[in-house]
Design a protein around this nucleic acid. Structure first.
Lengths: 130, 130
DNA sequence: CATCGTTATATTCTTGAGAATATAACGCTA
DNA sequence: TAGCGTTATATTCTCAAGAATATAACGATG
């Protein structure tokens, strides 16, 4: 039988189980919430610069993310065009879209996990033994 | 049917799903891996100072953690003694021990979740739809 | 060939978190 | 009452991550 800690918490305060989740590639960050948002914004705006600005991120950091992402997979997730019409721009590939979908589903499962834990905590139910 | 992203990953690299998890109280950190270790070390050494030093943490930060912890629950988790024999010292309460146990079990469940996700990723199995 | 807005990269500037330091209070012991 | 090692707290110092800034390359377009 698992431990309940409900009795030591303050009734007037709210406790919640939180967490974050990402995919690592060779000990370094590969894909997490920040990169999802960046890819989505590149998709919407067609520009790394606009995407970065839109989420209050420096261009430098966004660029570093893009190069890291492309380095960590077989085929590029972001295709970049320097110069030309409108000065250039960037688009995301179908594989980037797949990755976003995958992450969204993973996140769903994780949120369900967190929600269950927070609920068990609040309800002071006993959890099944490990 | 869930999305598989295995085909876009590099065969020679290793990908793994990672994450971290904590309990929040009123939008601020309440309990996570760092505080577990601090409590355990206080338990072992009988001293906040020694506990902090042992984990390469400044006394100031450790002290902040202790006061925050005690503020966030009904009854103190760390009982502090100023002056006296050996200058004083600190012990953790039974409730602190319960909290550590609870967190350890929570962590077990989380690790199982991560392991399953990493495995599904690697094996390229299709995951059950949300 | 000048213009444009982007990508690409280097360099300087800020700032805030945490380390380091300093100092006092405390209470038992001898 | 002097000494000890701890708790308790304030202040200064350090440093690195990221912001800000600057500048050049790029390539289509008119």
């Amino acid at each position: 039988m698992a431990t309940s800690i409900r009795h030591m918490l303050k009734d007037e305060l709210q406790y919640v189980v939180r967490g974050t989740l990402w995919i690592e590639c060779e000990q370094e960050r590969f894909f997490g919430p920040g990169r999802v948002e960046l890819l989505q914004r590149i998709d919407e705006t067609g520009s790394i610069r606009k995407a970065a600005a839109g989420m209050g991120m420096s261009y430098k950091k966004a660029w570093a993310m893009v190069t890291a992402l492309n380095r960590q997979v077989q085929r590029p997730l972001v295709v970049v065009k320097v110069g030309g019409e409108k000065g250039g721009g960037s688009i995301i590939t179908d594989e980037a879209r797949e990755l976003i979908t995958y992450h969204s589903q993973l996140r769903q499962r994780f949120l369900a996990f967190l929600e269950k834990e927070a609920n068990d905590l609040k309800e002071s139910r006993d959890l099944k033994p490990k």
